[in-house]
Every structure is written in structure tokens, then in C-alpha cells.
């Protein structure tokens, strides 16, 4: 091929060329570079998270240290023990399970409610033409522009009138539609990809609109529904601001409020704060990482056509 440079290449040049140049695919040099970049990026992504674990393992007397070790010296699980089960010797009880239960019960109910609302109305937006459809869709998008906390004050006043401050129901109400607009958009995008033929076939087979929805559309959109549920759940699970305003008593706290009691104590209990954080974050992260494959498809399915 290279008729102009017909004289044989020296072994060094050959090796260099092998290392740097490839006609197809990546050269070893490039591969190394890519891996190096990704490794650095991964470290940046993970290290701060690991530090939380580190702090949670430190014994109370060496909490403040400039050490960068991931497993600290004299690592101990004392913080976890105190977070989970309290400390009888200090006569301190633990609200940890209470907070988790509060968060879980509140957030699962809101997620279910908002999923049902969104799944049903997204179907209408996807399959029917009716006056107000376009306006409705744009309106739903507009709600995303409402600044956080803007609706908080009226909501607070409303809940106060209904005597629902400091109740789980109050927070459930406050949360229940906040993710609905975006979920409607996501699900509408997904429904749009399901061929209408299937529904028509079912209609002829003897289904009515309702059975079409429950027996064809819903089963076919399980991935999208799962993702929407996950988003809704995650959003509520670590929400802080609204909860701060609606809940003001310790026994009704959700965990984001709860773990702040560690940070607000006179001496900030970083060890316990971190231990509680780890305990909360681990199941959430496992769930999240496990479903991340779906997340990718679910997030883009609606927006990319064909």
C-alpha cells in the first residue's frame, strides 16, 4: 500500500505506530487515556460518598481528623448502634425507625396516588383529541417553572385551616400532585409509542375502553410506570423543604428532617449523622443502581421518536 515509503520501518517506529495509530478502533494509547479519564471521574464521583462511610466508622473521640484514610483507625460500629437502637447509658432513645416508617408510609402513598392520577390522564392526552388538550399539556409544563417554595405558603395556610399541620396526611396532600405534571409527560411519551392497532384489535376482540387500558396499555407500559414510580418515590423520599414547613414535631418527622436533629444538637453529631445517612442511602442506592438500565431507556423513550 505504502509504495512511497517502501523502506522497512525501524522496530521503534513500528512499536510507536502500533501504540498510537489505528485505522479502525482505538489505539492502545487512546484506550489507556479513556480508561484513565473514566477512572479519575469515577473516583471523583465515589470518593465523597465513601467519606460519609468513613466518618460514620470513626470513634467519637477522633471524629475531627485530617486523615484521608477510607477505613479509619479504630473503626467502630458504635455510631450505627446508637442511631439504630439508642444509647441506654446516655438515656437516649432512637427515632430512626420511626422516621423511616414516616417517610416510607407517606412517600409510598403519595407515589401511588400520583402514579394513578398520571397514568390515567396521560392516556387521555396520548390517545384522544379533545378541546383543551394542547393547552393542558403546555400548562403542565408551565407548572415546572413555579419556583420551589412558591406554593408553600398558601399550602401551609390551607393545611393549617384543615388542621393538618403536623400530620402525615398533611404532607401526603402536599406531596401528592407535585410530580404529576412531569409524570404525565413521561407516560404520554411512552403511550405514544404503543401502536393504536393493538387497542383496536382488542376493541374488536370484545374489550371496552377500560379493559383496553387495564389489559393492553398498562401491561405494556410497566417499564415506564416503574420508572415514573421510582422518580416520584425518590423525589419524595429525600424531600426536605416542604416537610420542614408541614411537620414540626419530632415524632412525625420524616428522615430528612430527622437526621438534621443530629446536625442541630449542640455538638454536631457527625458520626451519627453519617451513620444514619449510610443506613438510609444504601437501600436507595441499590434500588437506583439496579434500575439504572431501565432509567436510561425510560427517560429517552418518550422524547425520541421512532
Amino acid at each position: 500500500m505504502n509504495s512511497t515509503t517502501s523502506k522497512p520501518l525501524s522496530p521503534v517506529t513500528k512499536a510507536l505506530r502500533w501504540f498510537f495509530v489505528r485505522s479502525r478502533g482505538d489505539s492502545p494509547f487512546k484506550t489507556i487515556l479513556i480508561h484513565a479519564t473514566l477512572i479519575v471521574a469515577s473516583i471523583i464521583a465515589v470518593y465523597p460518598v465513601l467519606r460519609v462511610v468513613t466518618i460514620s466508622l470513626r470513634p467519637n473521640d477522633t471524629l475531627l481528623t485530617t486523615s484521608l484514610r477510607i477505613i479509619p483507625e479504630n473503626a467502630t460500629l458504635d455510631n450505627y448502634k446508637e442511631v439504630l437502637f439508642g444509647a441506654p447509658e446516655k438515656n437516649r432513645k432512637s427515632d430512626f425507625f420511626l422516621w423511616i416508617w414516616n417517610s416510607f408510609s407517606i412517600v409510598s402513598v403519595t407515589s401511588i396516588i400520583s402514579m394513578i392520577l398520571a397514568a390515567v390522564s396521560a392516556y387521555a392526552f396520548s390517545r384522544f383529541k379533545f378541546p383543551g388538550r394542547a393547552v393542558g399539556l403546555v400548562f403542565l409544563l408551565t407548572t415546572q417553572m413555579i419556583p420551589a417554595g412558591m406554593l408553600l405558603l398558601p399550602l401551609f395556610i390551607m393545611l393549617a385551616q384543615l388542621q393538618m399541620i403536623n400530620t402525615a396526611l398533611g404532607l401526603i396532600i402536599a406531596y401528592s400532585v407535585s410530580t404529576v405534571p412531569l409524570t404525565i409527560w413521561t407516560l404520554k411519551g411512552y403511550y405514544d409509542t404503543i401502536p393504536v392497532d393493538l387497542e383496536e384489535a382488542a376493541l374488536i376482540d370484545g374489550a371496552n375502553r377500560f379493559t383496553v387500558f387495564t389489559r393492553i396499555i398498562l401491561p405494556l407500559s410497566t417499564p415506564a410506570l416503574a420508572i415514573a414510580f421510582l422518580f416520584s418515590f425518590m423525589g419524595g423520599w429525600s424531600e426536605y423543604l416542604v416537610a420542614r414547613v408541614v411537620l414540626q414535631k419530632n415524632d412525625i418527622y420524616t428522615w430528612p428532617l430527622g437526621i438534621f436533629t443530629y446536625a442541630q444538637q449542640f455538638t454536631v453529631a457527625w458520626g451519627q449523622f453519617s451513620a444514619a445517612s449510610v443506613l438510609i442511602a444504601i437501600p436507595v442506592m441499590i434500588l437506583f443502581l439496579y434500575s439504572s438500565k431501565w432509567l436510561i431507556s425510560g427517560l429517552t423513550l418518550g422524547s425520541v421518536k421512532g
Partner: peptide, 13 residues
């Protein structure tokens, strides 16, 4: 009536 669609419209699930 029963109908056979051009795309067959078999329920994928």
C-alpha cells in the same frame, strides 16, 4: 366481527 390487521396487532405481552 373479527379482524386481521395488516400489522397483525398481536399483543406483545
Amino acid at each position: 366481527i373479527a379482524m386481521v390487521f395488516q400489522s397483525y396487532a398481536l399483543y406483545p405481552h
